[in-house]
């Protein structure tokens, strides 16, 4: 993918990402590398003028973000990823907006995954703690029953214990057959659970490999994992 925001300059200068069914793929890289931008590009939120986005064998480059949601993609942005003035339950309902079937079962699954949300279901999402908000955000995306779940720094601002918990949950989600594409600052931990890892630098792929390979790569260790 090559592209940028609106009529501005290109931010992505050739990024290739791939996730297979049921896999976890992790993107790491320095601040401003274009990780979030790459995620938005996959989701159709910016202008990709060269390259393609293929989902389930179908080229979806021309589709709007809403249409991609309908196709089975879910996205949790890095910031502003909840409806702060709405209750937890309403957040989840909005996640299921496009579904015409009965989604109460999915909601139960989300509550099983994140029990704290069930407790606070009638509270405004904006009144929750940072970690709880991230859970709401992930839960909202799960409500669409996506085949691909995209998470932009789901553990930002989350304490180490909750972070471990969140990672466990994410692995659980992946086990149910959902593919996960995730951006993470906690590179070491993320790469440990990753089937595939991508290191982005200045809008381009710098290193690619399985999570283990990247963790073992001395150059990656030196520049991104702090030794």
């Amino acid at each position: 993918m090559v592209g940028g925001y609106g009529r501005g300059p290109d931010i992505l200068h050739g990024v290739t990402l791939e996730v297979d069914r049921g896999e976890i793929a992790v993107i790491v890289g320095p601040n401003g590398a274009g990780k979030s931008t790459a995620m938005k590009a996959v989701f159709g939120m910016l202008n990709v003028h060269t390259g393609s986005v293929v989902f389930n064998g179908e080229d979806i480059r021309e589709l709007t973000p809403q249409a991609r949601v309908a196709k089975g993609m879910g996205f949790v942005p890095q910031t502003h990823n909840i409806f702060a003035s709405m209750s937890v339950e309403e957040n989840l309902e909005m996640g299921a907006f496009l579904r015409t079937d009965d989604y109460s079962e999915t909601m139960e699954q989300v509550y099983d995954l994140f029990p704290i949300l069930k407790e606070k279901r009638h509270q405004h999402a904006g009144e929750l703690s940072g970690g709880q908000r991230q859970q709401v955000a992930v839960g909202r995306a799960l409500m669409t029953k996506p085949q691909l779940l995209m998470l932009d720094e789901p553990t930002a601002g989350v304490s180490p214990i909750v972070m471990d918990e969140l990672f466990d949950r994410i692995i659980e989600v992946a086990r149910t057959g959902i593919s996960i594409l995730m951006v993470e600052q906690n590179a070491r931990q993320a790469l440990e659970i990753a089937d595939k890892g991508y290191v982005l630098v200045q809008g381009a792929n710098a290193h690619t490999g399985s999570g283990k390979q990247l963790l073992a790569d001395p150059e990656v260790r030196r520049s991104f994992l702090g030794g």
């Binding site: 973000p65 942005p77 502003h80 409806f83 702060a84 909005m94 907006f97 496009l98 909202r140």
Partner: peptide, 10 residues
């Protein structure tokens, strides 16, 4: 509340 996220919810 959140226009972008509403788009992402379809």
């Amino acid at each position: 509340d959140n226009e972008d996220l509403a788009l992402l919810s379809g």
